[in-house]
Design a protein around this nucleic acid. Structure first.
Length: 853
RNA sequence: GCGAGAGUGGCGGAAUGGCAGACGCACCAGACUUAGGAUCUGGCGGGUAACUCCGUGGGGGUUCAACUCCCCCCUCUCGCACCA
């Protein structure tokens, strides 16, 4: 026997060689088509775990495959290095977040290199480098200049554990918890910086249509943006103020029997008469307190109070009461609604609870005109407005927009409800009482964070000049190295005199710096561009002439990203923000496209051996180092991809590693046997032509299947097909076919097909076969479709859809001939005795089904 | 409550209208061996002595033919949740 496969020797050897040769160095080669393959960069937590392998290995395989297909591939890597864990470590252990972060990066860089990926380390970026965040700050200034950044005092979400505000996207779940630490958030009134992402709501929605992204992500973004079309209707208070409401059902305006305002609505105080002021103020306070508690929306009881004020319904001139209630949110629409209890379940419940009138304006099918003409609150036994009708009231709101006819609605009477929306909007508009309007669920992006380890917001507050942006040439605003970390829950920047107290850049008077830093999603919104020319204009002062944070010529070549891969958890955070960024950049003339990533693929999550999400608290976090030490990188790479479909994820089960390990072992032996045989150089026996044909056929079929699998990210079946091919080759090994030139071709192609998945063993075997150029610079094997075709095929013979026999037949045999041959089979004759053939179905080259009575 | 996805041997999974279980793990038997947690050969959904029958969460339907398409239900996972 020859030497055994020893990854411990060959893997470090090739990793060193590749680095020395600069095999993965990026070059801008205009003669070759480019492929920008991007995978979500790393947070430097300190350790690479199984999840990183699961995310990166298939991305690398795909990038390598593109490279072998003639593309000039850019596959960069870097670190998303700002964030709270560094600060927490600083508080706990007294080291500066910078020291913690950079030592983690050094460690992780080493671990990442063991993956044997084709990363462009020459373009690495680290977002906490001042020369990186100089440009993050530059973007802030650009957004500010273009009226996309503003400062606002408003209720915001605050995480009491992270001690900072959060963007709406970072508040998750029904208990409204912090996305990072799972602590329920509370409301606080604070002055904060926000980005006008809502200005791009329509564009973000429209852009989704023709993007090659998973439907699931598109749907999540779609729902998150939450566009609804309807109308604004102008009500007037008795004091003469206009109360604008947003509704998706303007046609039901004739059924509005009261109005509800959000407790925070600015007109509440004015329209409340003094007699009601105590009650109203008490309710407002209660609602504000409610916000500070964890709110479960499901079993919340219905609350609200009458303000004592009235409004005039503009469609019919009716005087209707104005209530306030916490089910109306200030942040959505106009913070005021017209309540149509007959046709909205929430308004119906509210009307029932507080004995308010219910008037049907859409007659459900099957009802007569009269029994629904005046419905009232069933809970209220007496009273002018609410007398109980003799029969036929509604038990619940009738919400159909498609079936029913308008009643009690003036000019709309008799109109089918399906047509009433348009008619109502036209009517309102012609009378100046309303107009079409859309509303979005999306809120502006809150980017202020009360934390130290982030990019400082480049703003100075001056008593006389007000908000003053730091001039471009003064960037970066650098984080101090001597900040003190105390567990006070407040940013050390606030207590750092040297950082905080500065001169106004405009007038030179004493002024104060903004001490909040930017959301780290700012840093990751543009990192795909930073990779192009990392630390562009390093050490230089920026001037007004600098209009791009990367070398525009390089950007012109590589952008946009061709394939992005990463986890689904960023669907409505990073992936939304970076799209917004790019659209804004496009409008500023900085980029030539308005979507950052053409294609997206979401890998699944790798779970702990217990089938649960990996987490420190569960103690089920797997670090693959020990498995890599035992089996080698190539085996672990293969195992990662063989778990199942990449988008599915699954539990870590190292017992399955042996399968890959044995496969690589057998492959090694197969090639070394061949080399050994060649060296003997005997007079070889003539290989049988049938065997040669079969070998070539299998090879070409394998090339086809593997190529398809590669383009569809089906790496688990790619490996299965490699194994099948290997099994065939092993069976043929003991026949004379090994003396055919086709045998050598098959082995060479086999290695080429393995190369993207198993880069080290492929390189070693490729060189042992006598090649001197890297296997990773070779062309992907091309299948010959004709040679992949079989001349004979197996046709399944069914009787009444049950398989009773099979036969071989030449390819392309006529239906009739197949039938004739099948009817001759003894196994079939047996089944057809005393039966009449009713029908025969032939699927050419595959199947015949004989249907009998 | 609304929306999306998933459910296939002991296990991971394959097959997108045409032979269910490719490929692998585990397991069983055999070979080689002083030995085997190595390697090689064979077996491996269930019932049955066999012919064969049953089998892709459950029920119904379309079709010569359904894991695959349609309808209803169950379970799990994820997203949203007073959004007017």
């Amino acid at each position: 026997m020859h030497e055994t496969y020893d990854p411990k020797i060959i893997e470090p050897k090739w990793q060193e060689t590749w680095e020395k040769q600069g095999l993965y160095k990026t070059v801008e080669d205009l003669d070759r088509p480019k492929w920008y393959a991007l995978t979500m960069f790393v947070y430097p937590s300190g350790d690479i775990h199984a999840g990183h392998w699961y995310a990166f290995i298939p991305s690398d395989v795909s990038a390598r495959w593109r490279r072998m297909n003639g593309y000039n591939v850019f596959f960069p890597v870097g670190f998303d290095a700002f964030g709270l864990p560094a600060e927490n470590a600083a508080i706990k252990r007294g080291i500066h977040p910078k020291a913690w972060t950079y030592s983690n990066i050094a460690k992780m860089r080493f671990q990442l290199k063991r993956m044997g990926a084709m990363w462009a380390w020459d373009r690495e970026v680290i977002t906490c480098d001042p020369e990186y965040y100089k440009w993050t700050q530059w973007f802030f200034l650009k957004f500010y200049e273009n009226d996309l950044a503003y400062r606002e005092y408003a209720p915001v979400d605050w995480c009491p554990s992270c001690n900072t505000t959060l963007a709406r996207e970072q508040v998750w779940g029904d208990d409204r918890h912090c996305e990072r630490c799972r602590t329920p958030v509370i409301k606080k009134n604070l002055e904060q910086w926000k980005f006008r992402i809502t200005r791009y709501a329509d564009a973000l929605l429209a852009g989704l249509t023709d993007m090659d992204w998973p439907e699931r992500v598109k749907l999540m973004q779609n729902n998150w943006i939450g566009k609804s079309s309807g109308a604004e209707i102008y009500f007037n208070t008795e004091q003469g103020d206009t109360l604008t409401v947003f509704t998706t059902r303007p046609e039901t305006a004739w059924g509005a029997t009261f109005m509800v305002l959000s407790p925070e609505h600015p007109l509440v105080a004015k329209l409340t008469p003094s007699a009601q002021q105590e009650t109203v103020r008490a309710y407002q306070e209660q609602a504000a307190r409610q916000d500070e508690m964890t709110r479960k929306s499901t079993d919340k009881e219905i609350t609200g109070v009458f303000t004592g004020g009235y409004a005039i319904n503009p469609v019919n001139g009716e005087r209707i009461p104005i209530w306030i209630a916490d089910y109306v949110l200030m942040g959505y629409g106009t913070g005021a609604i017209m309540a149509v209890p007959a046709h909205d379940s929430r308004d119906f419940a509210f009307a029932k609870r507080f004995a308010l009138p219910i008037r049907c304006v859409v007659r459900p099918p099957g009802r007569t005109g009269d029994d629904v003409a005046t419905l009232s609150c069933p809970d209220r036994p007496t009273g002018g407005l609410c007398s109980l009708p003799p029969a036929g009231g509604l038990d619940e709101a009738y919400e159909s927009k498609t079936e029913g006819v308008m009643v009690n609605s003036g000019d709309l009477n008799g109109t089918p409800v399906a047509e009433a929306f348009q008619k109502a909007v036209t009517w309102l508009e012609s009378k100046g009482k309303g107009k079409p309007a859309v509303s979005f669920r999306l809120r502006d992006w809150l980017i202020s964070r009360q934390r130290m380890w982030g990019a400082p917001i480049p703003i100075v507050y001056c008593a006389s000049c007000g908000i003053v942006p730091v001039p471009q040439e003064a960037l970066p605003v650098v984080l101090p190295d001597d900040a003190e970390f105390r567990p006070t829950g407040e940013s050390p920047l606030k207590y750092h005199k040297g950082f905080r107290f500065v001169k106004c850049p405009r007038c030179g008077a004493n002024a104060e710096r903004e001490t909040d830093t930017m959301d780290t999603f700012m840093c990751s919104s543009w990192y795909q561009y930073a990779y192009l020319s990392p630390y562009y204009k390093k050490g230089e002062s920026l001037t007004a002439q600098n209009t791009s944070p990367w070398d525009p010529a390089i950007g012109q070549y590589w952008l946009p990203v061709d394939q992005y891969t990463g986890g689904i958890e960023h669907a409505t955070m990073h992936l939304l923000y970076t799209r917004f960024f790019t659209k804004a950049l496009h409008d500023m003339g900085i980029v030539h496209f308005d979507e950052p990533m053409r294609r997206l693929f979401n890998q699944g999550m790798i779970l702990g051996p217990d089938g649960e999400k990996m987490s420190k608290s569960r103690g089920n976090v797997i670090n693959p180092d020990s498995v890599v030490n035992e089996y080698g990188t190539d085996t672990v790479r293969g195992y990662m991809m063989f778990i199942g479909p990449w988008d599915q994820g699954g539990p870590w089960d190292p017992s399955a590693i042996d399968g890959i390990s044995r496969f690589l072992q057998r492959t090694w032996n197969l090639i070394l046997d061949h080399i050994h045989r060649e060296q003997l150089a005997n007079t070889p026996p003539m290989p049988h032509p049938d065997q040669v044909n079969l070998l070539e056929q299998t090879m070409h079929q394998t090339i086809i299947k593997i190529t398809e699998g590669m383009s569809a990210f089906r790496f688990n079946t790619v490996i299965a097909h490699l194994m099948e091919f290997s099994n065939t080759l092993l069976k043929m090994k003991s026949t004379s076919v090994v003396y055919a030139t086709a045998w050598g071709d098959a082995l060479r192609n086999f290695i080429l097909l393995m190369a993207p998945l198993f880069p080290h063993i492929s390189e070693e075997l490729w060189h042992r076969l006598g090649n001197t150029e890297s296997v990773h610079l070779q062309k992907w094997p091309q299948a010959d479709v004709n040679k992949a075709k079989m001349d004979r095929t197996t046709v399944v013979v069914q009787i009444n859809s049950r398989v009773r026999s099979q036969m071989t037949a030449p390819l392309g045999m006529s239906d009739h001939a197949i039938e004739q041959q099948a009817l001759e089979l003894s196994a079939i004759k047996k089944w057809l005795e005393n039966k009449r053939i009713r029908k025969v179905i032939v699927v050419p080259d595959r199947l015949i089904n004989i249907v009998t009575d």
